[in-house]
């Protein structure tokens, strides 16, 4: 006869122990094994770290997103702390010579400064070299610039979409990661067609493979992709 368990009965509790003990042990073992296996194969999006600190001086360009072009012609994107940009601080210094200090993020030869201090420097700002590269139709992924330039690794795909949008809403410069190199790089700084920040509609296309039209311009040693978000489609 099948034993009948009654929770409040001490007798039936003991009877149940015989059947359930090996099941509980198996369940504990199964949970432990699954924890181990799932932890070992987990993908790590990165710990939000920078590679160090950096002090730079150069000419500030406020649009489409703040950047500094050094006297050597190296273009460094600027962002604020956390998930915020520094548009408000950069705007009054547009075209002026500035000095800045902050955290240093880097992927490949592309640098970003997470600005702790930004102020005008002595001397005149120099207009950076600009080279229009014409109209392009590019395929790639719009990513949060801070994550893709080294703070995370690289912080893409839909699981990070909301996080990337939080950065975008906060003003962190977006970066277009092209599927194949364009003018020598896969990492393109982004902006809207009017050289302003990308419109809010870009959020629907964040962290997913898209094809879109736009124009390219080399500013210093960086390529800026002024994308027409209205043309964005799934390739």
């Amino acid at each position: 006869m099948t034993p009948f368990f009654i929770g409040w009965s001490a007798r039936s509790g003991l009877r149940a122990l015989g059947f359930l003990s090996p099941i509980v042990v198996a369940l504990l073992t199964c949970f432990g094994a699954l924890a181990f296996a799932l932890a070992v194969v987990s993908d790590d999006p990165g710990g939000g770290d920078v590679i160090g600190e950096m002090r730079i001086e150069g000419t500030l360009i406020a649009d489409p997103y703040p950047m500094i072009v050094t006297d050597a012609g190296h273009t460094i994107l600027l962002s604020g702390g956390g998930k915020s940009g520094i548009q408000d601080e950069a705007r009054p210094l547009d075209g002026k010579r500035v000095k800045a200090f902050g955290g240093h993020a880097r992927r490949g030869d592309r640098d970003m400064l997470l600005v702790y201090e930004l102020s005008a420097a002595s001397g005149e700002g120099r207009a950076p070299t600009r080279e229009p590269l014409g109209s392009w139709r590019l395929t790639g992924e719009i990513c949060d610039g801070k994550c893709v330039l080294g703070v995370m690794r690289p912080g893409n795909k839909p699981v990070h979409k909301a996080c990337a949008n939080v950065c975008f809403i906060g003003g962190v410069p977006p970066v277009f990661v092209a599927t194949t190199p364009v003018a020598g790089t896969r990492y393109l700084l982004m902006g809207g067609p009017d050289n302003r920040a990308l419109p809010d509609a870009a959020r629907d296309h964040m962290a997913a493979l898209r094809r879109m039209d736009g124009t390219l311009e080399r500013i210093g040693d960086a390529i800026v992709f002024r994308a027409d978000i209205a043309t964005a489609v799934v390739p």
């Binding site: 702390g81 956390g82 998930k83 915020s84 990070h160 979409k161 909301a162 996080c163 949008n165 939080v166 950065c167 809403i169 906060g170 959020r203 629907d204």
Partner: peptide, 20 residues
């Protein structure tokens, strides 16, 4: 992790972060 460190409230970002 995903919704903090921004100038906005993290619960607001949870709802506004992705509206696709």
């Amino acid at each position: 992790w995903y919704f903090s460190f921004s100038p906005y409230d993290r619960f607001e970002m949870l709802l506004r972060g992705n509206t696709s």
